Amino acid sequence: MKLRPPPITRHLWLGLGFVFTAVGLVGTVLPLLPGTGFLVLAAWCFSRSSPKFEAWLLNLPLAGQLIRDYRDGLGMPLRAKIVACLSILLAVSLSIGRIPVLVGQVTWVLIGLFGIWYIIWRVPLRRVP
């Protein structure tokens, strides 16, 4: 039997789920914002707060299958990994000049490098026939 968290905690997870869903849906339209990662986070938040919204997210036509594959440990196809890494590289390259402080620029580059490292080494490669 799964214990339910206190109402305040459930509301917090629900709110975060909606925020991540909104950012993820915007990311499906904007080329420099990785939408799927935010939708995976949203599904995780909804799994702790609302089975109804979790099911809704997992049944979305475009993103639902990607989220289910990630949860099942199936990973990402090679093409998706390449697109994700190139998107991170492009986003960091285009925005680095807009950050006026060197520490901020270095931090932004390190975050981008961590994202690329994570996608390449930590996310399994899914073989697509």
Rank of each mutant, 00 (worst) to 15 (best):
P61V: 14
V103H: 07
L58K: 09
V123R: 00
L33Y: 08
G115L: 11
Q65H: 07
K2Q: 08
I67H: 00
L30H: 04
G104H: 07
L32G: 07
G73A: 09
C85V: 12
G97N: 09
Q105F: 08
R68H: 01
H11M: 14
Y118V: 13
V83S: 09
I111D: 02
S93N: 04
I96P: 01
S87I: 12
I119M: 03
G112F: 12
I119V: 15
V23Q: 02
L32D: 03
K81Q: 04
R79N: 09
E54V: 13
G64L: 05
C45P: 05
G37K: 06
R126L: 11
L33K: 01
L16E: 05
L62P: 00
A43N: 01
P61I: 07
P5D: 10
G37Q: 03
A80D: 08
W117T: 15
T28A: 10
L86T: 13
L102T: 15
I120R: 15
A84K: 02
V29N: 02
L62G: 00
K52P: 03
P129W: 13
G115M: 13
L30N: 02
K81P: 08
V26S: 01
L125R: 11
G115R: 02
L66H: 12
L12E: 00
L12D: 00
L57K: 05
Y118C: 10
V128R: 14
P61K: 09
P100Y: 11
W117D: 00
T36Y: 11
V109G: 00
L41D: 02
L110E: 05
P100V: 14
V109W: 10
V103P: 01
G75T: 10
I96N: 00
F18W: 15
G75K: 04
I8Q: 06
V106S: 06
Y118M: 11
A55Y: 12
Q65T: 15
R98I: 14
V106M: 07
